[in-house]
Design a protein around this nucleic acid. Structure first.
Lengths: 192, 192
DNA sequence: CGAAAATATGGAGACTGTCTCCACTTGTCA
DNA sequence: TGACAAGTGGAGACAGTCTCCATATTTTCG
């Protein structure tokens, strides 16, 4: 499902318009007010076209999510190059929270749409997890972080932050989760 | 929305049947295969009755969730009475993971249904959060746990565990998240 | 360049699940 | 037991989703 087809010029254009419009509406938190058909009209294409490119709302979400992931991965690589591993990890995770905070609507919409088919999230997010794995592994090599916990747990914590996006004290709590994760990663003391 | 109405005998009976059947189907992971109307028939009531008691799938989820929360709170209170605070907290959190593992379907279904209206989750889960707050506060008083992070962060982490219920290595990762949280709570060292 | 082949478009209308409404049944209270 | 309140069920109205195909656009190739 990654690629495989060259896609005609006008088709690619329509696809791009749909994704762009979707991202815009996601971020504005207006996506769920719309009928799927109306979304098509709003993007300036017919229903048939919409459905051919994205059979479901979730498919659309996946495409938008994939774009986000690409940007985040690039950022992870950049941090990795310019900072000590442990610090890169910390800055990256704090940055994730900041990003979700700035793009509240996007985060919330993606969380809701992916709740069912989170296999799709796992799919689109594999690259992201891979980026976190790299940051983590580097920090372990530096001896800054325990080696008995891997990226999956961190992804889960991030998932929780994203999924709980409507809690009143979201930002403070999200920051606290990151603090707990980072401190928990740092001290390999006895566990329960 | 808590109570307020005495509810007639047969009405209460129907309500209970609906909740019981729902829990059963949630746990079996079969709930999403059904039309809501068919669920009514399956529970042995008419559509009208179903819709009067639970206007939406989410409302039904909320009721089921509330039942779970009650049991979990009771368990928290019991642990609190029989164990040192820090240990009670640890056992409780580990027990949550175990519970979600045993009731995978239930956890998953609730997570999906509550993804949108997680205000409802916050509502029904307030008691649960309160229970965690108590466990945490007691551990802080014992000096076993830092005092600059509160229950909200822990709830978020739990939320993440529940929401990510389809990851391949779920159980191991969930256990790791709890480990990170507990260790993170234990060592009030410098944070990033 | 022009025509045939391949690919993509749009939107009318079929389809499917949701939800309302109310004539009827059951429970409650004196 | 009668009378009133509360609750029930399911037929049918309604709303969103999705399919289908006649038409339009792009690409390929002589």
């Amino acid at each position: 499902m990654t690629t495989g087809k060259p896609l005609r010029a006008d088709a690619r254009r329509n696809r791009d318009v749909l994704v762009a419009k979707a991202r815009e509406l996601f971020d504005a938190g207006e996506f769920f007010d719309l009928r799927f058909d109306d979304f098509a009209r709003l993007a300036g294409v017919g229903t048939g076209t919409l459905y051919r490119h994205f059979p479901t709302r979730e498919a659309l979400a996946e495409a938008v999510y994939h774009g986000e992931v690409l940007a985040l991965c690039e950022r992870a690589r950049q941090l990795r190059r310019t900072l000590p591993a442990a610090e890169a990890l910390a800055v990256f995770l704090r940055g994730m929270v900041e990003h979700m905070d700035v793009h509240k609507g996007l985060a919330r919409t993606l969380a809701v749409l992916m709740a069912g088919r989170s296999g799709a999230l796992a799919e689109g997010g594999r690259e992201l997890e891979h980026a976190v794995t790299d940051l983590l592994a580097a920090a372990v090599r530096d001896g800054a972080v325990r080696d008995d916990v891997d990226a999956g747990a961190v992804m889960m914590a991030l998932h929780g932050i994203g999924a709980a996006h409507d809690r009143p004290g979201w930002r403070a709590e999200a920051d606290d989760v990151i603090t707990l994760v980072l401190d928990g990663l740092r001290c390999p003391r006895s566990s329960g």
